[in-house]
């Protein structure tokens, strides 16, 4: 899963590189258009188009019946009932294409989240780094240290939380750059990337040991070997919102609106009944 995720990340990085320096809305628009088309195609071939059309026609017919027979309470209630029932059927018909879409769109959203979801640290900002350890005995006495490269400084001594097997540091950034911080535990060394930049970049929030969901959701760095005393290293980047028409909007909402827009706009071209 990690290999797959990393491969997708590589392709995605290449794609995003072509938008280097542009406002994120441009790359978001293109991604939304492409996924809109892809999802349309998946939807077309994985859904029961004839049934979907039939159910939607039935809903529309009942909707029109309410308007046409507006003096009849019987028609009003029966048609409303038909519409609610047909809506459930419509939702059920959408489950199959939904299943087929979950995987590709899920993988895509993971990648997008690294680009659009967080911003790199800026020089002068503080960083919280959290290392989760395996069983190292008494954590308070364990030999744990952090080594940072030039450009980054350690601002606080390690804060140990034995109940969570966690060790936390606060770091400070001095200048832009792609850094690698090193954590030493019981003679072992484990690294984690750290980005200090004023541009949009792919960010790795977590380096983790093997695990299905972590491998799927955090594919940015090599997996920590299972023999390591470190289970994960997490860097807390700040969430970021996308500026659209003067509003700060979460990127997933922008993606939702744009991908739906492209999907609906192109459904006629691809002859898909949604």
């Amino acid at each position: 899963m990690t290999t797959l995720s990393n491969s997708i990340a590589f392709v995605f990085d290449l794609f995003m590189w072509s938008f280097n320096g542009l406002h994120p809305i441009w790359s978001m628009t293109v991604i939304s258009a492409l996924t809109g088309v892809l999802m349309l195609i998946i939807y077309k071939y994985t859904s029961n188009q004839a049934e979907i059309r039939k159910v939607k026609d039935w809903i529309k017919a009942n909707f029109l019946a309410i308007i046409l027979y507006k003096d009849s309470l019987k028609v009003l209630f029966s048609s409303t009932g038909h519409i609610f029932r047909a809506n459930l059927r419509y939702m059920r018909l959408n489950l199959v294409p939904l299943l087929f879409m979950i995987v590709p769109v899920g993988l895509l959203i993971v990648q997008m989240n690294f680009w659009y979801g967080y911003k790199p640290f800026e020089p002068g900002e503080s960083i919280l780094v959290k290392a989760t350890l395996a069983n190292v005995g008494d954590l308070m006495k364990a030999e744990v240290s952090l080594v940072v490269p030039e450009g980054v400084e350690i601002q606080t001594p390690p804060l140990r939380i034995p109940n969570n097997s966690e060790v936390n540091w606060r770091l400070g950034t001095k200048q832009k750059g792609h850094y690698e911080i090193k954590i030493h535990v019981g003679g072992q060394e484990m690294t984690k990337t750290l980005v200090v930049s004023d541009r949009m970049e792919r960010l790795s929030l977590l380096r983790h040991a093997s695990g299905f969901w972590d491998g799927l959701l955090y594919p940015g760095e090599r997996v920590i070997p299972s023999s390591s005393l470190v289970r994960s290293i997490e860097v807390h980047y700040q969430p970021v919102f996308m500026g659209v028409l003067g509003w700060d909007v979460h990127w997933i909402i922008v993606y939702f609106v744009l991908s739906i827009f492209f999907g609906l706009a192109l459904k006629g071209v691809f002859r898909v009944h949604i």
């Binding site: 996924t35 999802m39 939607k56 519409i83 419509y90 939904l98 087929f100 879409m101 739906i260 999907g263």
Partner: peptide, 16 residues
């Protein structure tokens, strides 16, 4: 959100 497919269904259903 898991993509336009879910969105289509959701929007259509919601609209109706």
């Amino acid at each position: 959100y898991i993509g336009p497919g879910a969105g289509f269904a959701f929007i259509s259903s919601f609209f109706f």
